[in-house]
Simulated scan of single mutants.
Amino acid sequence: VHNGGEDGAPVDDMITYNYSLSADGNSMDITIQGFNSGVPEAEWIFKMVNSQWEPTYEDINITFNLDMSGAESINSEGISIAGGNLFGVPGENQMTDEDGDNIYTTTITVPANSGSDYTFINGVSDWGQKENIAGQECAVDPYNDRTIEWGTEDIVVNACFGICGDGICADLTPPTTVLVHFNVYAPGGPETVWATGSFEGWSGYGVAMTDPDGNGIYNGTIELSENFGDVEYKYTYGGWDVQTGATTGDWCDWYPDDTWDNFGFSVEEHDVYLPIFIWGGGCGQWYSDMAGRPWMIANEPGAIAVGPSMGSGEWWSNDEASLTDRACYFDDRYIFTW
């Protein structure tokens, strides 16, 4: 550092080394102050160990108990924990439910006095199976995972799949959520198309989208916390080899002044119905007079009617009072996919 001039001081200048020796004499920290024209600018730090000393490392056990009773379904291939710098990839640390109570358990040995992000996976094969805690208080950047730190004692973590907090699902209050509807027109696409984005850490997977009626329109939904805020997203075939996004700088580019071609939307207190973009078409949209737009029953007398023949409402029709008495009929939203 000094002889090569990296510290900004002439080679023939005196240099001061500061060192801190450990109590056992087997390690020390050495620091060198760097200068630029005589002004302190940077500091080099070197951690040294006695080459004849073999350090000992202490481990602890972390037991994870995951309640899956709140999940819509449980993957028959298994449940796992993954992520961060210590918990590996999906399937590497599988969890078991030996007594059939929907609480899956595993114990993992890790170095003491450390920490890591992590996430629970409803499956064992890919990141698209991870829980969605985006917008909740325990989600951390960049992937909306959980995080944990520990010292020298064994610890136990009790959790509910998809809900932040310490405890089983019955002990926790789920967040208020809205439903986001993803749609893309991709004729000839694979069995599954994915919506990936900032809401799940840009994994290349995220929301699985399928085309069950074979019309080329893939649909998928996800729940996000109310008032989640701005979301950027793209569509992929799974991973990043095949993807599609916005026309850079055009109206569908959520942040047109940056260099990324991401679609976007904002989550407030209502469900979100996204445009049906055409795969590979930038901001181009697939359009139908009916499909892809939210519809509601008109909030007016006669909007619902029953009769003996087409167009006849002589048996019954809603009146003015029903708009209040049966208000739940008039606030639902309907999506047509053809």
Rank of each mutant, 00 (worst) to 15 (best):
G311E: 04
E314W: 10
E269S: 15
A139L: 05
S203P: 02
R326K: 13
I74R: 10
E232W: 03
V178H: 06
T147N: 15
E41G: 07
F64G: 06
H270P: 00
V110R: 04
Y104T: 02
S37P: 00
G281P: 01
G91F: 01
V11P: 02
I168M: 14
I74S: 03
F277A: 03
V207A: 08
N227E: 12
D166Y: 08
N36G: 00
G4Q: 08
S125F: 01
Y255A: 15
H2I: 11
N299P: 03
D253N: 12
G100F: 08
G100A: 05
Q285R: 12
A134F: 01
G151N: 14
V207C: 05
D319C: 07
D211K: 01
W286P: 02
A208F: 01
T248K: 14
Y104V: 05
F263L: 13
E269F: 03
F120V: 07
N183G: 11
G245P: 09
C328E: 14
D67V: 08
Y255I: 14
V184A: 02
N299F: 14
G311S: 09
N122T: 04
D141F: 09
G204F: 05
E153N: 15
A321P: 00
C169L: 02
G249V: 11
D117W: 05
D97P: 04
G239V: 03
G165I: 03
L66I: 11
W150L: 13
L172A: 05
W251K: 12
E41A: 15
A9I: 12
P10H: 12
R293N: 08
F161N: 01
A112E: 11
D101G: 01
G188F: 03
D261E: 14
V124P: 04
